[in-house]
Computed example of a mutant assay.
Amino acid sequence: MNILYLVNMNEKNRKGLFTATHEKLKEIIKHDDIDEYKVYSIQFCDAGLMKLLKKIKNKEIRNKGANHFEYEGITYEKIYIKVGVFNKIFEALNLDVLNFLPTLIKYKNIIKQSDLISCHWGYPHGRIAFWMGKIYKKKYIVTYHGSDVHTMPVKSSHIKRKVICVMENAYKNIFVSNKLHIDATKLGYDKSNYVITKNGVNFDKFYEITQKEKNEIKNDLNLTGKVVGFVGNLNKIKRADKLVEIFDNVSKNIDEEISFVIAGDGPLKQSMINDSKLKHLNIAFTGNVDVDEVRRLMNIMDVMVLPSENEGFGCVIIEANACGTRVVASNVGGIEEAIGNKDMLVESGQDFEKRFADKICDVLNSNYEKEKLIKRVHSNFTWEIVAQDEINVYKGAKYE
Results as ranks from 00 to 15, higher is better:
residue 302 D to N: 15
residue 222 N to C: 13
residue 20 A to I: 12
residue 84 G to R: 02
residue 175 F to I: 11
residue 52 L to I: 15
residue 78 K to L: 12
residue 128 I to L: 13
residue 66 A to T: 03
residue 148 D to F: 02
residue 277 K to A: 08
residue 10 N to F: 10
residue 47 A to Y: 07
residue 331 N to I: 04
residue 70 E to D: 13
residue 398 K to H: 05
residue 133 G to A: 05
residue 215 N to P: 00
residue 240 A to E: 09
residue 331 N to S: 13
residue 126 G to N: 02
residue 183 D to F: 06
residue 225 G to F: 06
residue 121 W to Q: 02
residue 263 A to I: 04
residue 96 D to S: 09
residue 105 I to Q: 09
residue 317 I to W: 03
residue 211 Q to M: 07
residue 249 N to P: 01
residue 38 K to T: 10
residue 82 K to C: 09
residue 233 N to L: 11
residue 11 E to Q: 13
residue 380 N to D: 12
residue 181 H to C: 12
residue 67 N to Q: 08
residue 318 I to W: 06
residue 206 F to Y: 14
residue 1 M to S: 10
residue 322 A to V: 01
residue 109 N to I: 00
residue 396 G to R: 08
residue 167 M to S: 08
residue 128 I to C: 01
residue 363 V to N: 01
residue 13 N to A: 15
residue 44 F to V: 04
residue 93 L to R: 12
residue 330 S to F: 09
residue 255 D to T: 00
residue 65 G to F: 06
residue 265 D to A: 07
residue 25 L to W: 08
residue 346 V to K: 03
residue 38 K to V: 07
residue 88 K to S: 13
residue 108 K to M: 10
residue 334 G to A: 10
residue 372 K to M: 12
residue 113 Q to N: 15
residue 12 K to R: 11
residue 67 N to S: 15
residue 226 K to E: 08
residue 33 D to E: 15
residue 281 L to E: 06
residue 121 W to H: 06
residue 165 C to V: 00
residue 395 K to L: 11
residue 384 E to K: 14
residue 298 M to I: 05
residue 98 L to E: 05
residue 84 G to E: 06
residue 134 K to D: 11
residue 18 F to L: 00
residue 277 K to V: 11
residue 3 I to L: 10
residue 285 F to C: 06
residue 159 I to L: 08
residue 43 Q to P: 00
residue 171 Y to T: 08
residue 103 T to A: 14
residue 239 R to W: 02
residue 133 G to T: 01
residue 97 V to E: 15
residue 278 L to F: 09
residue 106 K to P: 05
residue 79 I to G: 05
residue 255 D to M: 00
residue 122 G to N: 01
residue 205 K to G: 01
residue 174 I to Q: 00
residue 73 G to H: 08
residue 283 I to M: 02
residue 24 K to E: 12
residue 286 T to E: 04
residue 6 L to G: 02
residue 110 I to C: 02
residue 255 D to G: 00
residue 29 I to N: 11
residue 282 N to D: 14
residue 117 I to E: 01
residue 100 F to W: 12
residue 106 K to Y: 12
residue 68 H to N: 13
residue 302 D to L: 10
residue 351 D to V: 00
residue 95 L to F: 13
residue 151 T to A: 08
residue 368 Y to C: 11
residue 357 A to H: 10
residue 342 K to C: 07
residue 52 L to H: 08
residue 41 S to Q: 05
residue 165 C to Q: 14
residue 99 N to T: 11
residue 208 E to R: 13
residue 84 G to H: 03
residue 128 I to S: 01
residue 319 E to C: 07
residue 233 N to Q: 11
residue 163 V to D: 02
residue 135 I to S: 02
residue 8 N to R: 07
